[in-house]
Lab assay of single mutants.
Amino acid sequence: NKFNKELQWATWEIFNLPNLNEEQVKAFIDSLRDDPSQSANLLAEAKKLNDAQA
Rank of each mutant, 00 (worst) to 15 (best):
F15P: 02
K48A: 09
R33W: 15
Q8V: 09
L49N: 02
A10W: 08
L43F: 04
A40W: 11
E22F: 12
P36F: 07
P36W: 05
R33L: 14
S39M: 10
N16L: 08
N1R: 03
L20I: 04
K5G: 09
E23D: 15
N1I: 04
D34N: 09
I14R: 00
N1P: 15
N4P: 12
A40N: 09
F3A: 15
Q24R: 01
A27Y: 14
A44Q: 12
L17T: 00
Q24Y: 02
N41A: 11
A52Y: 10
I29H: 04
A44E: 09
E6V: 07
L49Q: 06
P36Q: 04
F28S: 00
K26S: 09
K2H: 15
Q38L: 08
L43Q: 03
P18F: 08
E45N: 07
P36S: 03
T11P: 03
A46L: 02
E13V: 13
S31P: 01
N50L: 01
E22A: 13
W12L: 13
K47H: 10
A54G: 09
P36E: 03
A46R: 00
N1W: 00
L32A: 04
F28I: 07
W9Y: 10
W9E: 15
A10S: 02
N50E: 01
N41L: 13
E13S: 03
P18A: 08
S31W: 13
N41P: 15
L43H: 02
S31D: 08
K5L: 03
E45L: 06
A27H: 13
A44V: 09
N16K: 10
W12K: 14
K47F: 06
A44N: 09
Q24G: 00
L7P: 02
A54L: 09
L7N: 02
D35W: 06
A46T: 01
L7D: 04
L32N: 00
E23S: 14
W9Q: 14
L20V: 01
E13G: 03
D35S: 10
N1F: 00
Q53D: 03
T11A: 09
E45A: 11
E45M: 08
E45Y: 07
W12E: 15
A27Q: 12
Q38G: 07
E6M: 08
F3R: 15
L17F: 04
S39H: 12
L7W: 07
L17I: 01
S37I: 05
Q38W: 04
K26I: 10
W12A: 14
L17P: 00
N41K: 11
N19H: 11
Q53G: 04
P36V: 05
D51R: 09
N19S: 11
I14N: 01
E45F: 07
L20M: 01
N21S: 11
